[in-house]
Amino acid sequence: MLKGIKYALLIPLAMLSFACSQKSTFVLLPDLDGAVGEITVTTEKGSTTISEPMRSTTVTGPNSAPSDQVALKEEEIQATFGEAMAAQPEPGVVFILYFKPGSKELVDSSAALINDIIRIIADRKSVDTSVVGHADTAGNEEYNKRLSTKRAEAVAGILSSKGVDTDILKITSHGENDPLIQTGDNVSNRKNRRVEVTVR
């Protein structure tokens, strides 16, 4: 038994030492919308923050600090990462559906979007579509939590009645806590009474 425990401890140690040679390179790219974020690469010996696109750093081992940053050319990035980049899935498609005040009934312009949602689910062969309910701040928090849940369930019900498999739907609700438009409490707001459907 004790021997077994010893060996069990040795396995992760062996994996650690095997991992020591695995040189890693990191490159920052602009986001899909063109904005540029940041990555911070950290080892036990140091760290570097890249905030300009197309710049890279390399770490040769766990006992090395990240290298000085190097600007890469488009061709160099393509040569190494083209295959991974070509496999990038399309971003999810987001639909925002609006509701009548205090109601789980869709406004007409939003009801008209249901068929588009169904078409995109089919086009993408989605098995993971989020249906997230929201409410405005009119009424108390508990009421809005229930209302946002009812709205999400209503949308899921409509999709299901038109043949969408409910297994692909992930239904959640945020009550009044995640408004599209910031308002004070007890404010009726057309844009905050909504369900967001993301088809992935």
Partner: peptide, 16 residues
């Protein structure tokens, strides 16, 4: 990765 940890703000990056 076996030799480093990345923290992010944003973002989009590549790693090898």
């Amino acid at each position: 990765t076996p030799v480093a940890t990345i923290g992010i703000r944003g973002t989009r990056f590549l790693a090898k």
